[in-house]
Simulated assay, not measured.
Amino acid sequence: MDAATLLARLASVIDAHDWEGLPALLHPDFSCRLVHTGEVFDRAGWVRLNADYPGFQRLRVEDLVADGVRGVLRARVTGTSETGDELVFAVASFATVRDDLLAELVEVWADVGQDAPAGTRLD
């Protein structure tokens, strides 16, 4: 499978909370690095991170660009905090495919709706 197909399927599986189906998309040597924390997860650890993430509700694809074995998925992720507040994140997932499976992801996460730091924008 190419990167575009795998990333689209990945988004669909995660949005459906299909944690049993998720490993089938990942190479046995899969790794995911979260840029914002520096954490690196193996296949089982990344599936567990997603399955156990508190309050996760939806993942919606906003953009997907791919060419062969490399691709980028940009998505909006929503959830609910422990206090019931809505949480909204943006994620860009940079993927590499090997043997028709996702072998590597590098993810960049950001909160949505933040204000720009004071003095950094022209009025």
Results as ranks from 00 to 15, higher is better:
52 D>M: 13
71 G>P: 10
74 R>Y: 00
46 W>R: 04
53 Y>L: 12
83 T>L: 09
38 G>A: 09
67 D>R: 11
37 T>Q: 05
37 T>A: 08
35 V>A: 14
66 A>W: 04
86 E>S: 13
33 R>Y: 10
44 A>R: 13
79 G>E: 04
91 V>R: 00
89 F>L: 01
81 S>G: 15
68 G>M: 09
88 V>C: 03
72 V>T: 03
79 G>F: 01
80 T>I: 15
77 V>C: 03
85 D>N: 12
91 V>N: 03
90 A>T: 12
89 F>N: 02
88 V>W: 04
56 F>M: 06
42 D>F: 05
49 L>F: 15
33 R>V: 14
33 R>D: 13
61 V>Y: 04
37 T>C: 02
40 V>D: 05
40 V>C: 11
47 V>I: 05
61 V>M: 08
65 V>R: 12
52 D>K: 14
30 F>E: 03
37 T>F: 00
39 E>T: 13
34 L>Q: 08
88 V>R: 03
41 F>H: 15
34 L>E: 07
59 L>E: 03
88 V>M: 07
65 V>Y: 07
81 S>E: 08
58 R>C: 04
29 D>V: 06
38 G>W: 09
73 L>D: 00
51 A>T: 07
63 D>V: 02
68 G>R: 06
46 W>E: 05
61 V>E: 11
92 A>F: 00
43 R>Y: 06
